[in-house]
Design a protein around this nucleic acid. Sequence first.
DNA 1: CAGCATTGTTGATGTAGATTAATTTGTTGT
DNA 2: ACAACAAATTAATCTACATCAACAATGCTG
Lengths: 270, 270
Amino acid sequence: MNATGIPGDGALVRGNRDPKLTIGTDADSGKICPHNANVSCASCRLNELCLPIALNKSEIHQLDEIVERNRPLKKGEHLYRQNDAFKSVYAVRSGSFKSYVLSDSGQGRVTGFFLPGEIIGMDGIASKRYSNSTQSLEHSSICEIPFSQLEKLSHELPNLQHHFFAIMGNEIAKDQQIHTLLSSYSAEERTASFLLGLSSRYARVSLSPTRFLLPMTRSDIGEYLGLTVETVSRILTSLQKKGFIQVNNREIELKDIDGLRHIVASCSSS
Amino acid sequence: MNATGIPGDGALVRGNRDPKLTIGTDADSGKICPHNANVSCASCRLNELCLPIALNKSEIHQLDEIVERNRPLKKGEHLYRQNDAFKSVYAVRSGSFKSYVLSDSGQGRVTGFFLPGEIIGMDGIASKRYSNSTQSLEHSSICEIPFSQLEKLSHELPNLQHHFFAIMGNEIAKDQQIHTLLSSYSAEERTASFLLGLSSRYARVSLSPTRFLLPMTRSDIGEYLGLTVETVSRILTSLQKKGFIQVNNREIELKDIDGLRHIVASCSSS
DNA sequence: CAGCATTGTTGATGTAGATTAATTTGTTGT
DNA sequence: ACAACAAATTAATCTACATCAACAATGCTG
């Protein structure tokens, strides 16, 4: 069973690259800078993961026409805020984002994290308003896809329609896994599962699945997993002591992926 | 409103004392039995809530052509099981369903409940396999919509495409609310929120928002909300003692909706 | 690079809700 | 109508995680 699960998403691991630690790939420039606003979908290195998947050349070109490549966002900038009118969905080009809702008392709860190649904003489609706020966790860039145009184009390109249904279906399936996680996993199980999830999402964009930087704070993780900062911190230390991971501030190395899987699999073994 | 309601279907009325309380049907249908397999979308009393919404007459007719109205399901029958090949989504015509996943240890966790007019099975779209099992909670009937045909038709009818995007978007938004609920609400807040949610879903199909039967067990509710049966039971009793609700086994009356809303709204007021 | 805010760690204590267990009530099949 | 079973309640105890508190790194900013 494949957590990342977009159909046909195989075969993206191009050559094992130097596992220099990067978040969402900044450092390397070459011809294609990830923050560069002038990349077309056709030349984007994420095009096999993102919307263009399963589209042919001419179709990709049509998609290109409606994509707006906005200026990069600085750390902490908002993509949109709760209750803003829904206009677009966004594809993460580089960097990372979190979305969150504020309770009446001002307490935020994180509802999701987004890495390169992932789609943000689908929660607004039904109500025509975004139901959460979304903020970049680091210097990031995104592609904006005006939804009405995406709909129109989907109508013309059955492949795109099919794929967007799949993206939304994937989001639904993922959210239900989180439902299960939150309603029945212990703190350690949640944390292990979270790390494994990040790992495969990094792998998806050809980054190391065993060594990565956490773009979010412990507090973000806690809010996402329904735990306090202190618990997250304690669990990470304890996973390290047990030899499953190596933590150094935001730097994480998964030393025993199978061990982590085992923690998750043994849920409610009572 | 005296809504003894459902002609020809005693199965919907639990017990013998209060024949007013029914599940899964609305008040005013005199001629159309909710379990009847021969209702067309055009004549279905749910057609303004379900897929046909926003379609015109001829479009509804086309939708009708692809909808399969299967035989009713007895209580406890499965619509599909986890890992079955995904083929269709389903619209609840009458009755109710729960979906759940089994942990390796056999412990089930409920991931959702479905009432008339709601769509089941979208979690399978991406991976082409259902990611949960879904079972009827009472004698129920459904409309099966083969997904490949729905896609084809959506391609021809922009209204349908638009609406189905909206249905999926709604599911995503709803799942995220549950994420917040599970990650930050107390047992009492979760339960109050759950009751209010049911209330508005019943209202949507023209049933009383203040008096209804719970189609699911306490245990189902607990698994859904991440609580134990005992806690659910205790909270219900306590809400009753405080005058917010009146409980009699599966029979629920919300006596102070604003009070319940207040419980939910005051979350994490710390 | 000094100074302050943010983020992260660690320990001591409290508590919401789990667990265990016993009892009552409701449901089902014959 | 009566066993046999499933669902719901209630009470006593236990525990995983929250809360509270103190402190140590880290990272910005002028």
